[in-house]
């Protein structure tokens, strides 16, 4: 996805930052090991959060760690989270989503994106097949992702002017994804997923607003004209507020503080970064 789910670093403890990095590294490693080097390029904060959240909220997934080197950090041993269900599920979701995104790019993006998409599609396609072969969970994700792309392009071609409605396909996809790791009452996971998907979609829409305006592309906020930014900010603020409420209903196990940091502060900090573009930067690479 797009990397809008990050911790708010100033409030993160050093230990927590290390754990977060370890999960990030673990996901990178799993992508490389199971799906090839191309897959590593798709590594994103969003899926690192997904893995960490699953480990935290599910409670039955027990992570273990090792110290090792890798290509990105050849000189320093890094702590890395070993593969577990949360990490492999995130990796599967990332691969499936990448495949659909590339297919979408080929369909309705500009010339260069089409070329890039056509070149990458074989890799993405084989990665998706590998993921699908792992079983029922991946097939569920695939079905949800397919539905999302179809509904999204339908909404775009009808030029949907309701941001709430435009965000629905992405929201529903994340809802299904979160339902896969549900423990106890599924509804909390579903609503959390829905809101998180909505957040990602709206962030992306706001981030691309100026660009889309210039190029005449579809954007759900474009119909609000000069109020677009204010409206987008309000919609995002509502979403982060509801997410902050929802997270308090989970019985978070490990990484509680980090997950809460991301949900209660990281998301809002991202909203602020996007609305005040050119301002502070919280997106330092790990």
């Amino acid at each position: 996805m797009f990397g809008y789910i990050k911790p708010y670093r100033p409030e993160l403890k050093i230990r927590e930052a290390e754990e977060y990095r370890a999960v990030y590294c673990g996901l990178c490693r799993e992508l490389g090991k199971s799906y090839g080097i191309f897959a590593r390029m798709t590594l994103s904060y969003d899926f690192a959060f997904m893995a960490m959240f699953m480990m935290s909220a599910n409670g039955e997934i027990c992570p273990s760690f090792e110290n090792c080197r890798c290509m990105a950090h050849p000189f320093k041993k890094q702590c890395r989270c070993l593969e577990n269900r949360a990490i492999s599920l995130s990796a599967k979701a990332a691969m499936i989503l990448t495949y659909y995104k590339i297919k979408d790019d080929i369909k309705d993006k500009g010339f260069f994106k089409k070329i890039a998409g056509a070149l990458l599609l074989p890799f993405a396609s084989s990665a998706r097949k590998k993921a699908l072969a792992t079983g029922e969970e991946a097939q569920k994700i695939d079905l949800a992702a397919k539905k999302m792309t179809e509904e999204q392009s339908a909404l775009e071609s009808e030029k949907c002017s309701l941001p709430d409605k435009a965000a629905q396909p992405t929201a529903k996809f994340l809802e299904e994804l979160m339902a896969l790791c549900a423990k106890g009452d599924e509804r909390i996971f579903r609503r959390f997923g829905y809101l998180l998907g909505r957040y990602i979609y709206l962030c992306d829409a706001l981030d691309d607003l100026e660009d889309d305006r210039k190029k005449g592309n579809y954007n759900p906020f474009i119909f609000a004209n000069e109020n677009a930014k204010e409206e987008a900010k309000a919609a995002l603020n509502l979403t982060t507020a509801e997410l902050g409420d929802d997270i308090s209903l989970f019985e978070l196990d490990r990484y509680k503080e980090t997950v809460e940091n991301i949900v209660c502060m990281g998301l809002r900090s991202e909203v602020r970064r996007i609305t005040e573009k050119g301002g502070e930067e919280n997106g330092k690479s790990l």
């Binding site: 309000a234 603020n237 509502l238 982060t240 507020a241 409420d245 209660c264 809002r268």
Partner: peptide, 13 residues
């Protein structure tokens, strides 16, 4: 919520 991005009564952040 629209203004602050969190719910009233919630202190975190």
């Amino acid at each position: 919520q629209q203004q602050y991005g969190s719910s009233p009564g919630r202190t975190s952040g």
